[in-house]
């Protein structure tokens, strides 16, 4: 009696396990929460943006979007995890220019546009070129003139080698034909501190960090690298307006592993498109100093490819 009862229980358990393991009946995607892998640690602007996405995503996706942190290797660890994941749309990467274009090229890591299908670009952060409030240059062009007359004299504080400040400055130097002294700092705070303390002349920062410094007269913004002016810094011209053909922004996008079925990508894209219109989402992103800038799968694949090719030239030139 007792044995048979145990046996029944075991059978039942086995059946339950089998049921759990077998593929879900052809239910519509998404049938379970979708994981959004963040290839960085907590707290950066990338993390904050991902959490803003996740906070509204369930309304448009019909399932929760779970942010999973997989930091390490300049973003390569998290990126590779998604590439190796089953291409079923349940594992996405919250990728960006930093890991998936620049790091991929500089470190020759296979985590670029060849390994992913873009789902949607969410936003981008334009970089703001800023100098100390008492600096002799009132405009971007004046600063470039100075650098031209005094090659290598302009001390530029970047926020880390190949980071969000280093890269646009390399683009500008190439377009304007200037030489400057490139000093790497460990992040945006230390770089800004170096400029404020007079240990460097210029850096790139992000708007919410710079606005109070500008209001107090400590810093002056000379140009932004985006295609348009920033809504919260409308008085600051773009680099292009100043006469140099450079546009550069750090994008953030949801990326799926190669081989994800087009129908699934379309579904996800549609959810992200609606999410990008959400009012509370837009407000959160704005507080972080960015504007939402949606691009769909096909459109963004093209943007990314173009960026990749420009970046490859810069990286190639620097490595020589």
């Amino acid at each position: 009696m007792r044995t048979s009862r145990t046996l029944t229980l075991m059978l039942a358990a086995l059946l339950a396990a089998l049921a759990a393991a077998s593929p879900a009946p052809a239910q519509e995607f998404p049938a379970k929460p979708v994981e959004l892998v963040l290839p960085f640690g907590p707290g950066g602007s990338h993390d904050l943006t991902a959490r803003a996405v996740a906070s509204v995503a369930h309304q448009y996706l019909g399932q929760a979007l779970l942010v999973v942190l997989r930091p390490g290797g300049g973003g390569a660890v998290g990126s590779q995890q998604v590439i190796r994941a089953k291409p079923d749309g349940y594992t996405l990467l919250f990728g960006g220019t930093g890991p998936n274009t620049i790091f991929a090229l500089v470190q020759k890591a296979p985590i670029g546009p060849d390994q992913f299908v873009p789902v949607a670009r969410v936003n981008h952060s334009p970089a703001v070129l800023a100098v100390r409030g008492d600096a002799p240059w009132k405009t971007f062009r004046e600063m470039v003139e100075y650098a031209k007359k005094n090659p290598g004299k302009l001390n530029f504080a970047n926020t880390g080698p190949w980071g969000a400040a280093d890269f646009p400055m390399r683009l500008i130097a190439r377009a304007a034909g200037i030489e400057y002294n490139n000093i790497p700092y460990d992040g945006g705070g230390p770089a800004l501190l170096a400029v404020l303390g007079g240990h460097a002349d210029a850096t790139f920062g992000f708007a919410p960090q710079l606005i109070p410094q500008i209001a107090a007269g400590k810093m002056r913004a000379l140009a932004v690298t985006g295609a348009r002016r920033l809504s919260i810094m409308a008085g600051v011209p773009t680099v292009k307006e100043e006469g140099f053909d450079v546009t550069f922004t750090m994008w953030r996008a949801a990326l799926a592993p190669k081989g994800t079925p087009p129908a699934v990508v379309e579904k996800l894209e549609a959810a992200f498109r609606k999410l990008a219109e959400d009012r509370s989402f837009k407000a959160l992103i704005k507080q972080l100093g960015d504007d939402v800038d949606f691009q769909g799968s096909k459109e963004f694949a093209e943007t990314w490819r173009q960026e990749w090719e420009t970046a490859a030239q810069i990286v190639g030139a620097a490595k020589k």
């Binding site: 919410p208 410094q213 209001a215």
Partner: peptide, 12 residues
């Protein structure tokens, strides 16, 4: 970041 989200921009 928490201050930024609340619309307060810490500065001088």
């Amino acid at each position: 970041a928490a201050l930024l989200i609340h619309g307060i921009r810490p500065g001088p």
